[in-house]
């Protein structure tokens, strides 16, 4: 099972390749992805699809909220907890 750091690294890498298109753009782990325009409402769905495929997860509709996906930190915390529940 991937740990929080690995989840964060994979998420950062995906965001760089698919939304920032650059290695030099700043991307802080606590940066609001929607608030700073890194992703928009369709982009967040792309990101969620990536997370579901990459970590073999299914998110419930009620989990699809900004609290869970609006930053690299929030994503890695949420995905890690999902993976832990899944493994039980």
């Amino acid at each position: 099972m991937k740990n929080r750091q690995e989840i964060a690294a994979a998420t950062r890498d995906y965001i760089r390749k698919n939304f920032l298109y650059s290695d030099s753009q700043p991307l802080a782990d606590d940066q609001s992805l929607l608030g700073t325009g890194v992703v928009d409402s369709t982009g967040i769905l792309e990101l969620i699809t990536f997370l579901e495929e990459d970590f073999d997860l299914r998110f419930k509709d009620e989990e699809l909220v900004a609290d869970n996906f609006d930053s690299v930190d929030r994503i890695s915390t949420f995905v890690e907890s999902k993976l832990k529940n899944h493994a039980r």
Partner: peptide
């Protein structure tokens, strides 16, 4: 930046090819 443009156009072409239609691309 040509590398960034290349990454953007490659991604967008793939998205359009896979899903088709104008709803498939993000607004950004």
């Amino acid at each position: 930046d040509s590398a960034a443009v290349g990454a953007l156009t490659t991604k967008c072409r793939a998205v359009v090819q896979m899903h088709g239609g104008d709803r498939s691309l993000s607004n950004t």
